[in-house]
């Protein structure tokens, strides 16, 4: 690992003041320290923000929104009963990511800001063709661009999450969907800016009775998604009053599909409808490096996630979050 200067500011203002070109923020370190070991990321200065005060709260605001501090650990957010009750699909996505150890360390803001999955960085130089399963089939114009690796961000983008940011010029906020951009740098943060919180609007909780995050991977646990879908329905009697659908592991950013949402609105749930919505979600997908299977996998994942959401959010988190087999118990559940 390349040598770096190390700063431990005591306050948020000191942290912003400590930034200089080439510096990086250190939160949980689960992504950054890993990439520093391979040399893929070589900060000249590390600013340790992991213990800054005031950034680790989960607060319900007067307008019904929920604010999540940047340093809330993934495990703590998923395990917060009030949060998981209001946004069960987000808790399910969090618990489907990484391992117990990593979720105890990884932060909310770090998840938003994470670099592409490590197959993209076999060494210091990126090699996008090293793993075709991690290449985008949407939103990249057929070019070999690695997918955004997050599970957490997939339901967030469907729920209109807002990112609160602080920089040398003061605070600002943007929609999570606008945090990402094609090419480098991958986010629209201005150098020196820091994500301080994430906010879910009050309306996001209205989907809690019918929402699921479904993750398909090449082993049962502790693996990146091959395809994932966050599906939420707000029901009005037998009809879908409003639907949200977003996909993970298919595009350079968490991929929300407005066309599919529009198609679902006002309809009665059913297999045919969900298949048409999934078709609409994957319309225009292009395979790269032989990963055409990902298009069909994502289409089926989206349709199944919608069916699972229509069946209702389970009262208890399944043993295997995000798995259609999660409600089974016993040895056969790992098939």
């Amino acid at each position: 690992m390349k040598m770096f200067d190390f700063a431990q500011p005591a306050t948020l203002d000191e942290a912003i003041g400590a930034w200089e070109p080439g510096a990086a923020w250190l939160g949980g370190g689960t992504n950054l320290v890993d990439l520093m070991k391979t040399g893929a990321v070589q900060p000249a200065k590390l600013i340790d923000i992991s213990r800054l005060p005031g950034l680790a709260g989960i607060d319900e605001l007067d307008d019904g929104a929920t604010r999540i501090g940047a340093l809330v650990r993934n495990a703590d957010l998923a395990g917060d009963p009030a949060f998981a009750g209001r946004y069960p699909m987000v808790a399910e996505a969090l618990l489907s990511g990484a391992s117990g150890q990593l979720r105890n360390a990884a932060t909310v803001a770090g998840n938003l800001m994470q670099y592409p999955r490590d197959a993209y960085f076999p060494g210091p130089e990126p090699d996008p063709m090293a793993d075709a399963s991690s290449l985008s089939v949407l939103g990249a114009g057929g070019e070999p661009v690695t997918v955004h690796p997050s599970d957490f961000c997939v339901p967030l983008v469907a729920l209109d999450a807002v990112v609160e940011i602080l920089g040398p010029d003061g605070p600002r906020e943007i929609a999570l969907a606008d945090l990402y951009q094609p090419g480098e740098p991958r986010t629209t943060l201005i150098p020196g800016e820091l994500v301080t919180a994430l906010r879910l609007p009050a309306a996001a909780a209205e989907f809690r009775a019918n929402c699921r995050y479904l993750k398909v991977r090449d082993r049962t646990s502790f693996a990146f998604a091959m395809a994932s879908a966050a599906a939420s329905l707000r029901m009005d009697g037998p009809h879908i009053a409003e639907a949200r659908l977003s996909l993970g592991a298919v595009a350079p950013k968490p991929w929300r599909v407005a066309e599919a949402e529009a198609l679902l609105k006002g309809q009665a749930p059913g297999a045919d409808l969900f298949a048409r919505a999934a078709d609409a979600a994957m319309a225009g997908a292009q395979p790269v490096g032989g990963n055409g299977w990902k298009i069909e996998l994502a289409r089926r994942t989206a349709a199944r996630a919608l069916a699972m959401a229509a069946a209702g959010t389970p009262a208890d988190m399944p043993a295997l979050p995000a798995s259609p087999f999660g409600n089974q118990t016993g040895d056969l559940a790992h098939v």
Binding site: Q8, G29, T30, D34, D48, R51, A75, Q101, L102, A105
Partner: peptide, 24 residues
């Protein structure tokens, strides 16, 4: 951070000690 052999408890929580800088 992929194999878990380095797991320890920090303030009672299990973490991967290989990804945790001691200075923090």
């Amino acid at each position: 951070g992929q194999c878990g052999a380095c797991t320890v408890l920090v303030d009672g929580r299990r973490i991967n000690s290989c990804l945790t800088l001691a200075a923090t």
